[in-house]
Design a protein around this nucleic acid. Structure first.
Length: 490
RNA sequence: GGCGACGUAGCCAAGUGGUAAGGCAGAGGUCUGCAAAACCUUUAUUCACCGGUUCGAAUCCGGUCGUCGCCUCCA
């Protein structure tokens, strides 16, 4: 069984066959550092984090490059507004991005190059395009001549005539074709600038990715990824630049993920309907956001709402509860009863790795993979449920092994990374801190209630329980006394 | 206007030719003084609608309606 991946360029799934056997080279377009990142950026980072982890799980060596765009019109404009240099602004938001990634526990890419540190490579790439007559200089600007590149539109499935019909292209008298795009822009006073054969200026947006991917991954590499909104024009232009310059096929597989939407509309700055990663992480655990993201296939739209996030909270709690209960079971037992696990349950647990892998092999179907994990949890809960007080070693081994297995699988999505019991405890303490009540007071009230219960003064006992409940404290009467827990926010 | 994606239970979401995974919510049950929590069980004769192909379709083809996206910076 091989791993198949959907290729945007052909519209179909193909098996991954690395150019260098066993070694996958992947480039992903990272952020433009001019503001805090929203959860659309989080989806991108999480999806490719998962893809890298799964490829490595499947035994591939992966070289993962994700760039920073640290020079661009938006950065310059924003820096001017704030009266700081664009370097300063970009640095600030790269750092903010890294903090967000740490909070999301997204692993760093192997190489994280910045556009401004590759201007030399960019200039030589542009010069190569001019030499091949694929680019032309106008004043101190350099443009790519799209008509000279035969395959322009191959990725996005358009042709130049159609795009003219769109009539939304900006008319620039300097350009030969309105679709020509800037490789080098002359700088205005006060803007960051580099010397070049065409005068002082700065790189256009698309050229940096061609230059940096070539430097770190070569003329041809395996996977290039990003959000669907990068298909055109960004990735289309990258192909024109890279293939124009090298004559070699640029990328084997184009992987594009879908958008995060709010109320079915794309999250974007212009609509003002975006949520930053840090805003969301104030309300929800990183793993909740991860579960939310991976509960839908990466190419589909993902609608953010309180309901869907609440679902993710409940789902994650379910997983952790199962693991926590398994953890509390003994590892070894002497005089055990006969096993209770049914053939069907054993079968479910024995096959979960295969089923998970089959789902993931099919274009990283995390939604289905998670389904298999939940399915295994259901089987384990069922076994736990019917466990006698002296459970059999067979059942214990089954549960312990099952718990380890789903934890291992969940790791690919960055889930279930906490100690199960600590996860619950941590959430409790966080909430408790925000409440106007301390543990001692709670214990005190529970003791009072226990006394009332012993005297069968149910009215008083219930009153105390209601009082605590009003403060988000839930009581659980069990055989070994009364436990309490914070009603976790959802 | 051009191009593309999607429409599966109350909600979220897999499934792309062989008879509807999983999660949330709901209902019933175990437990309890009653509860809560937890767990178990259960929940779509049917996959937007209309035709067609097929022994067989949510899955393929044609059409209709609806939603969203790209075509300008965008993850």
């Amino acid at each position: 069984m091989s791993l198949i991946i959907f290729n945007t360029k052909t519209g179909r799934k193909i098996p991954i066959e690395p150019l260098e056997p066993g070694h996958i080279k992947m480039y992903v377009c990272g952020i433009t550092a001019y503001d805090y990142c929203h959860i659309g950026h989080a989806r991108s980072a999480l999806v490719f984090d998962m893809i890298v982890k799964y490829l490595r799980y499947r035994g591939y060596r992966v070289t993962y490059v994700r760039n920073y765009t640290d020079i661009d019109d938006k950065i310059i404009n924003r820096a001017n507004e704030q009266n700081i240099s664009s370097e300063e602004l970009a640095e600030k938001f790269i750092q903010a991005f890294n903090e967000d990634m740490d909070d999301l526990r997204v692993a760093k890419a192997d190489i994280e190059p910045k556009a401004t540190e590759h201007v030399t490579e960019i200039i030589s790439l542009i010069q190569g395009l001019i030499d091949k007559d694929l680019a032309y200089q106008v004043g101190n600007d350099v443009y790519y001549a799209v008509e000279k590149f035969g395959n322009y539109g191959q990725l996005s499935g358009r042709n130049l005539e159609e795009m003219h019909a769109g009539a939304r292209v900006s008319i620039n008298e300097q350009k030969i074709n309105p679709m020509d795009f800037a490789l080098w822009k002359s700088s205005k006073p006060g803007e960051p600038t580099w010397d070049s054969p065409w005068g002082p200026g700065r790189p256009g947006w698309h050229i940096e990715c061609s230059a940096m991917s070539r430097k770190y991954l070569g003329d041809s590499f395996d996977i290039h990824g990003g959000g669907k909104d990068l298909i055109f024009p960004h990735h289309e232009n990258e192909i024109a630049q890279s293939e124009g310059a090298t004559g070699a096929p640029f990328v084997n597989l184009w992987v594009h993920h879908g958008f995060v939407t709010i109320k079915e509309e794309k999250m974007s700055k212009s609509l003002g309907n975006f949520l930053t990663i840090r805003e969301v992480l104030e309300k929800y655990e990183a793993e909740v956001l991860r579960l939310f993201v991976f509960s839908t296939h990466y190419r589909n739209p993902l609608d953010y709402s309180d309901t869907t996030m609440k679902d993710a909270v409940a789902g994650l709690d379910r997983l952790y509860n199962c693991l926590a209960e398994i953890e509390q079971l003994p590892d070894k037992i002497d005089n055990s009863a006969s096993p209770v696990a049914t053939e069907k349950e054993k079968q479910k647990l024995a096959s979960v790795v295969d089923r998970f892998q089959k789902s993931m092999d099919n274009d990283f179907n995390t939604a289905q993979g998670l389904g298999h994990i939940f399915d295994a949890v259901k089987s384990m809960n069922r076994i736990k449920q019917s466990l006698p007080s002296n459970p059999s070693q067979v059942d214990l081994d089954l549960l312990k092994h099952g718990g380890r297995t789903i934890k291992k699988l969940a790791t690919i999505m960055g889930l279930l990374q906490e100690e199960p019991t600590l996860y619950i405890k941590k959430k409790t303490e966080e909430v408790l801190q925000k409440l106007d009540i301390d543990q001692a007071a709670i214990e005190q009230l529970i003791q009072e209630r226990e006394l009332a219960r012993q005297q069968k003064d149910w009215a008083k006992a219930d009153a105390i329980r209601d009082k605590l409940l009003a403060q988000q404290i839930e009581l659980k009467d069990g055989p070994s006394g009364t436990a309490w827990k914070v009603k976790l926010p959802v």
